[in-house]
Amino acid sequence: MWRDLAIASETSDASSPLLDDHATGDALALMEHGLRKAKEEQVISKGKPRVDPSVVSSSSREVTVQDCVDGTGWLQYKPDGKLKNDVPGSHSRADATVRLDGGTWKVSKLFFHEAGSC
């Protein structure tokens, strides 16, 4: 999911066909919202987040994971190629639910906490 989002963020494309490959429901809606906002602000992202999720709980059809997403190498840029702001990327806690959906595991819920939350 994060790789798909990073690719879509390179153009702030909320309609990227990659997004629903590994996300659905609320998680997909959250990513699309963020990409639409970036498009309105005329920013794109370069780089990618570093993730290392841990399983909090699991069953045969659902897994709850938690992560500290490292966004220090995934930054927003303006059309002129300059950084959007002087705030460096940060570490943010992410809580997610991953469900088996038609034979594919997809993130269905995603809560991304504020910068510096982990």
Results as ranks from 00 to 15, higher is better:
Glu62Gly: 05
Val107Ile: 06
Gly71Gln: 13
Asp20Asn: 14
Arg50Val: 14
Gly34Ile: 02
Arg50Thr: 13
Met31Glu: 13
Leu28Met: 03
Ala6Arg: 12
Leu35Pro: 11
Asn85Trp: 00
Phe111Pro: 01
Ser54Ala: 06
Ser9Met: 04
Ser54Gly: 05
Ser58Ile: 11
Glu41Met: 15
Cys68Arg: 02
Ser45Pro: 00
Ser60Gln: 11
Val69Arg: 03
Val98Leu: 05
Asp80Ala: 07
Asp4Gly: 10
Arg50Pro: 00
Gly102Ala: 02
Leu5Asn: 07
Arg99Asp: 12
Ala8Trp: 06
Glu40Phe: 09
Leu30Ile: 01
Leu19Trp: 09
Ile7Arg: 09
Ala27Gly: 08
Trp105Phe: 05
Ile44Phe: 04
Lys78Asn: 15
Pro17Asp: 13
Ile7Lys: 11
Cys68Ser: 02
Arg36Leu: 03
Asn85Pro: 00
Leu28Lys: 07
Asp86Asn: 12
Ser15Gln: 14
Asp20Tyr: 01
Ala27Gln: 12
Lys109Pro: 00
Asp101Tyr: 04
Leu83His: 05
Gly102Phe: 04
Asn85Met: 00
Asp67Phe: 08
Ala96Gly: 06
Gln76His: 02
Ala96Leu: 10
His33Tyr: 10
Asp4Ala: 15
Lys82His: 08
Asp21Asn: 15
Val65Gly: 08
Trp74Val: 00
Gly73Trp: 01
Phe111His: 15
Ser59Pro: 03
Val87Asn: 11
Leu100Asp: 12
Leu28Arg: 07
Glu62Cys: 02
Thr97Arg: 08
Asp52Lys: 14
Val98Arg: 02
Lys46His: 03
Ala14Thr: 03
Ala38Ile: 03
Ser45Gln: 12
Gly116Pro: 00
Pro79His: 03
Lys37Leu: 13
His33Gly: 06
Ile7Pro: 00
Thr11Ser: 14
Ile44Val: 15
Gln42Met: 07
Lys109Leu: 02
Leu100Ala: 10
Ala96Val: 01
Leu110Met: 09
Val87Ile: 13
Lys84Ala: 15
Glu114Arg: 08
Ala14Phe: 14
Lys106Asp: 06
Leu19Arg: 06
Arg99Phe: 01
His33Leu: 15
Val63Ile: 15
Gly71Arg: 13
Ser108Met: 02
Val87Ala: 14
Asp52Glu: 10
Ser12Ile: 03
Gly71Asp: 08
Ser15Ile: 06
Ala23Asn: 05
Ser108Leu: 00
Ser108Gly: 13
Ala38Gly: 04
Val65Lys: 09
Val51Phe: 04
Asp80Ser: 06
Ala94Leu: 14
Gly89Glu: 01
Tyr77Gln: 06
Phe112Cys: 00
Ser117Gly: 09
His33Phe: 13
Val87Arg: 07
Asp95Ile: 08
Ile44Trp: 13
Asp101Glu: 08
Pro79Phe: 01
His33Pro: 00
Asp26Thr: 10
Trp2His: 05
Phe111Met: 08
Ser60Leu: 07
Trp74His: 15
Asn85Asp: 15
